[in-house]
Every structure is written in C-alpha cells, then in structure tokens.
Amino acid sequence: MPLIEEIRELVERRIAATDGTKNARLFVGTRGGRITTAVLRDATHWDEVVTKIGFDHLKRHSLRHTGLTWMADAGVPIHRLQKIAGHGSITTTQRYLHPQYLALFEAANLLSAHLKEPSGKPHLRAV
C-alpha cells in the first residue's frame, strides 16, 4: 500500500511499536483486536460529527470514493487505483471515481485549446 508523506511518520511509529512481531496489526481496537466497523464508528464519533455538520447522509465508505477520486484527479492512472483499492476489475474502480464538474469543463477547454492552431482555426491531425 503506498503511503503519502503526511502519514509516513505515524505508520513508522506504529511499525516500531510492534517490536517486529510477525503478522502484528498496526492499528487495533480497544481490546487489542481487529478494528471493526462499530469500533471505528465509536472511536471517531462518526454519527455525532456528521449530524453536527449537517451531513447525516455521509457514510464512512464515501471516504473511500473521495480518496480514489482525489488520487485520480492528481493524475494517478486507473490501473494503479485498481491495485490500491484491491478491485478485481477496472470497471469497479471506475464506479468509485466522481470527478468534479469544474475538472470536466477544464478537460473540454484543454481539448479545445489543443485542437486550435495559433491562428485560432481548428485543425485535424492524421493519427
């Protein structure tokens, strides 16, 4: 799993805390076991937070969509996103991507600029 610089130090500290134990978990629940959905919800106070900010409809799984979309917008190729997400199919990965409308308009503007010669007239290139 790739690590962004912003969390590298945290993960390194967690690895050091395992004392090299084989198959040790980097993050554990309150009783030292696997982090379940319920543990994560309770530890983050998810329900209270989303209610307070007026986003009751927001689900934790939505953050997975957001993360993959941000990586795609940053230029990460879809075949790499598929690997990061653990999807068996690129079609599944595509369903996770939700580009911003402004980015879509910018793509159209870039294409228009590419197709115009300096004279401002459109041109066609042989492929």
Rank of each mutant, 00 (worst) to 15 (best):
H45L: 11
L81Y: 08
V76H: 03
R80G: 13
V76Y: 07
A74N: 04
F55P: 13
G54C: 09
K59T: 06
R64F: 08
V76F: 10
T66L: 07
L63Y: 10
G75P: 08
V50K: 07
K52C: 01
Q82W: 14
H61C: 07
I78E: 12
H87L: 06
R80S: 12
D73C: 03
V76G: 06
L63S: 12
A74H: 03
T44R: 01
I78K: 13
K83Y: 11
K52A: 09
V49C: 14
I53Y: 09
H45Q: 13
L63A: 10
D73S: 13
S89I: 02
D73M: 05
R80H: 13
V49K: 15
K83M: 15
L68S: 00
T66F: 04
L68V: 11
I53S: 09
S62Y: 00
G75W: 07
S62E: 14
T66I: 12
G86H: 09
H45T: 05
S89T: 02
H61Y: 07
D47P: 01
L58Y: 04
A72N: 06
L58W: 08
W46D: 06
H65Q: 07
T66P: 05
G75I: 05
G88F: 03
V76R: 08
G86I: 11
I84Q: 06
A85V: 08
K59Q: 02
G86K: 10
T69H: 00
I53T: 03
L68N: 01
H61G: 04
H65R: 10
S89N: 09
T44Y: 07
I53P: 02
L68C: 12
I53N: 06
L63K: 06
K59S: 08
Q82C: 11
H45N: 12
D73K: 12
K59A: 11
H87S: 10
W70D: 08
W46C: 04
E48A: 08
D47T: 14
W46R: 15
G75Y: 09
A85R: 06
Q82L: 11
L58S: 10
H87K: 05
K83R: 11
H57F: 13
A85F: 10
K59E: 06
I53A: 03
Q82A: 03
M71Q: 00
E48G: 02
L68Q: 07
V76S: 07
I84L: 08
D56K: 15
S89A: 01
R60V: 07
D56P: 06
E48K: 15
G67W: 15
G86D: 09
R60C: 14
V50N: 02
G75A: 10
D73Y: 03
L81M: 12
H79K: 00
L81F: 00
H79S: 08
T51Q: 14
H79V: 01
A85N: 03
I53V: 13
V76K: 04
V49H: 14
H87R: 00
H45I: 06
T69Q: 04
H57K: 14
H87D: 10
R60H: 12
T66M: 00
G54Y: 09
H87C: 05
M71Y: 02
V50R: 00
L68A: 11
K59M: 12
L58H: 04
G86P: 09
H79Y: 02
S62D: 15
E48D: 13
R64G: 05
Q82S: 05
T44V: 08
G67H: 15
E48R: 07
G75H: 09
D56Q: 15
G88Q: 04
S89R: 05
R80K: 12
D73P: 03
L63C: 13
K59R: 15
